[in-house]
Design a protein around this nucleic acid. Sequence first.
DNA 1: TTTCTTATATATCATATATCATAAGTGATA
DNA 2: TATCACTTATGATATATGATATATAAGAAA
Lengths: 107, 107
Amino acid sequence: MSLKPDLNALESRADEVAGLLKVLSHRNRLLVACELIDGEKSVSALEAATGAPQPHLSRDLARLKREGLVTARKASTSVYYSLADERLSRVINALCDSYGAPKRRKK
Amino acid sequence: MSLKPDLNALESRADEVAGLLKVLSHRNRLLVACELIDGEKSVSALEAATGAPQPHLSRDLARLKREGLVTARKASTSVYYSLADERLSRVINALCDSYGAPKRRKK
DNA sequence: TTTCTTATATATCATATATCATAAGTGATA
DNA sequence: TATCACTTATGATATATGATATATAAGAAA
């Protein structure tokens, strides 16, 4: 009747994972994360792709970065963002598989 | 230079998916969803498994149900909850694969 | 019926956190 | 200096949270 060990494993990270999901539980932050599946993109490229007002986008990117979901690379006047980690890519792909996108693929 | 069609597909559901993630972006609701991967469980079983106070659990279950993530089955004095849909199971499993649990499996 | 018990749900309240819209700021470069 | 690319701050509003109290519903027992 022991508690399930795999649940314990997730339970110990439940707060961490819940935090991750909280960051993604926002239309624009989610769209940004999906955009970055294909590789790094500048703020302006993300602005064009998502249609979000630039200050919003910047704030959302700051949040994604602060919480460790993305990394930033500065090149002269532009800033390029990328997904920070492989696990996140897998989760995003799982979301795309289950909802919406048939399969990520560059057009 | 057309917008990526697969992004459009997800974009049209971005609010829906973000809403789903918001419901899961909470320690106890996430744990409940993980518990239900193995099949339906009563409120008391979930209470024992998660350690959450009963009124919290009940409120969280109400939220999960209202948002369509779980279904409820009443049997005499108990209520048994289950994951509502296969897509959700896949996402939960993806989370377990990437974070924490090695692989869901009944001990 | 009345009362008790067990299982679950709902309500209240104080506090914290998230959100949007918008304004202002920084830093590099032409 | 002026402009472009991006960031940060502000204030109003909304929603979530935890702790706790109370309510319902079903069954058992008196």
